[in-house]
Design a protein around this nucleic acid. Sequence first.
DNA 1: CAGAAATACCTTGACAGGCGAAGTATCACG
DNA 2: CGTGATACTTCGCCTGTCAAGGTATTTCTG
Lengths: 112, 112
Amino acid sequence: MSIASDMIRGHTDTIILAQLMHSDSYGYQINRAIQEKTRGQYELKEATLYTAFRRLEQTGCITSYWGDENTGARRRYYSITPQGMEAYYRMVAEWEQSKQLIQTLIAPESGT
Amino acid sequence: MSIASDMIRGHTDTIILAQLMHSDSYGYQINRAIQEKTRGQYELKEATLYTAFRRLEQTGCITSYWGDENTGARRRYYSITPQGMEAYYRMVAEWEQSKQLIQTLIAPESGT
DNA sequence: CAGAAATACCTTGACAGGCGAAGTATCACG
DNA sequence: CGTGATACTTCGCCTGTCAAGGTATTTCTG
């Protein structure tokens, strides 16, 4: 992976919720979508992904159900809740704010 | 603090290096500069700050020396090294890249 | 002068999130 | 039957943050 994970840390949940805003999905698919969107520059590690699912479910942001595929491996689908949507919007707003903050703080001193 | 630290995590070192690009400085002053720059929206916790100094010194990004104040509390000044400058430029570039990435990933699905 | 507050630094221990590694199970292909 | 892709899960380590506590000096205030 080309991007340090500490850069992404704290955005994992938001990234997952963003995917689920689109439609219900399952772990593997979400991860592939992320890889495609970033053209291979980023992927969630499986352990990270499933840890996040559990965290999000515990906080009521998503719910899950087993897919009824009668072929292939079983899939656990996730669905975003209204509460999850609210959290998503809040997190995006926080991102916008912290983006500005970081920008301010790491930019080279313009004066002098 | 209004901004979640996980959002800033991974940028602490860059923020400190950015301050030192300007001029040598010491812990307390750096932290006050950060608070001023962000108008109180963000501050580094002392433990975090001094942990970062040690990390940066160990990796050769900064060097330190005791100030020769003959009044007031002693100050340990930090100076950025050429290696630190290199690291700084690299980290800023990484930030630009990860900023784009995160933006792509957390933005609401535009299609559909 | 005593006490508080500001300046300035340092350490310890706990916690949370990311992730390497390993495991389970199914299906397709040759 | 072995390999690889799909798909999920758990365990334990590592790293960065930070609450809490400590030290020492100076200045301000009554």
